[in-house]
């Protein structure tokens, strides 16, 4: 069980550079402010990319989990 209840799941596994961040930035507007997107990815780099993107876009990475693939939980803040 994840620590966060996601409002939307975004499967970004196996995408080439820079599509995970591009898709995330397009999709963030599809949830309401305060809601959470759960991103599924296979990119180690996304664990640094998404927090940096959140910093510049004013959103928030709540946390991440690593298992068979990587899960990153992002809250829309604006």
């Amino acid at each position: 069980m994840s620590d966060y209840a996601a409002d939307k799941v975004l499967d970004l596994k196996g995408l080439p550079c820079p599509m995970p961040v591009v898709k995330m930035s397009q999709e963030i507007g599809s949830v309401d402010v305060g809601q959470i997107i759960e991103v599924h990815t296979t990119d180690p780099g996304s664990l640094s990319d998404f927090p940096a993107w959140a910093e510049t876009s004013g959103n928030e990475v709540l946390g991440s989990e690593q298992g068979e693939f990587i899960k990153i939980f992002i809250k829309r803040n604006n």
Partner: peptide, 19 residues
């Protein structure tokens, strides 16, 4: 947006290195 993310990473990297 992608360029700014890369620049921000210079600062956020210390917090994300472990992950």
């Amino acid at each position: 947006m992608l360029a700014d993310m890369s620049i921000a990473k210079a600062k956020t990297i210390e917090k994300t290195k472990e992950n």
